[in-house]
Design a protein around this nucleic acid. Structure first.
Length: 210
DNA sequence: ACATTAAGTGATT
DNA sequence: AATCACTTAATGT
């Protein structure tokens, strides 16, 4: 853990803070598809991403999901930052997009470190800024793009996060991430394929134009 | 060979 | 863009 921590955060945090993180943090491995936190669950830890990627989903009361954005290396989730004052319930659902390693930090430490370490404060503010921007982008996407454009963006993002143009996903999965129906996705994918931007297979999509 | 699941399609709203 | 109803294709047992 020490090594991985240093690789990813060695340049951001001072040594004393790194030591504390090592002391109180728990290393956790998440397999692809595993849930880090679910909606309405108590937020007890703040995750520091070491590698991999996590997708952040919103969910309505019927259980319909919507992909908001991804969290990547060196990131944390700002939703947990809101919670540093006390226990609260998660507004979002976080699922590992690929195999992922995180360090879990008890949220009580967050407040304490804010006063103690400049680098921590800077990190928290930066994270806030980054998440807010991603949130705005998610809103723009929803408000201004039609389903076809959303789908293309989705494919690009997914290819980027997974570091491959060969995506393993069913039309059903995609429809659920975008909160639409499978039929719609199938038809749009067909169109996009005809435009030579992707190639379709069973359970798999090859992204050609990136 | 049969059941299950993924994907394609026309028609309707 | 969503839904229905149905078909076809791929895959697992």
């Amino acid at each position: 853990m020490k090594k991985k921590l240093n690789e990813n955060y060695g340049y951001i945090f001072e040594q004393a803070l790194l030591n504390e993180i090592e002391e109180v943090g728990k290393l956790q491995h998440l397999n692809e598809g595993e849930t880090l936190i679910n909606i309405q669950q108590k937020v007890l830890y703040m995750p520091l991403l070491l590698n991999g990627a996590i997708k952040i989903m919103r969910e309505d009361d019927r259980g319909d999901e919507l992909l908001l954005y991804y969290i990547e290396i060196g990131d944390t989730c700002s939703m947990t930052l809101n919670c540093c004052m006390g226990e609260s319930l998660s507004e979002i659902k976080a699922i590992a997009e690929v195999d992922t390693e995180v360090i879990l930090i008890p949220i009580q430490k967050m407040k304490e470190w804010l006063r103690k370490y400049d680098s921590w404060m800077k990190f928290v503010f930066d994270s806030f800024y980054n998440r807010t921007n991603e949130m705005l982008e998610a809103i723009d996407t929803l408000a201004f793009l039609d389903m076809k454009e959303r789908l293309i963006k989705y494919l690009k993002d997914k290819a980027f996060i997974n570091h491959t143009t060969s995506l393993n996903a069913t039309h059903r999965d995609i429809a659920s991430d975008l909160n639409t129906s499978r039929v719609v996705i199938s038809r749009l994918l067909k169109k996009i394929e005809q435009e030579k931007k992707i190639k379709l297979y069973r359970n798999k999509i090859e992204v050609l134009e990136v």
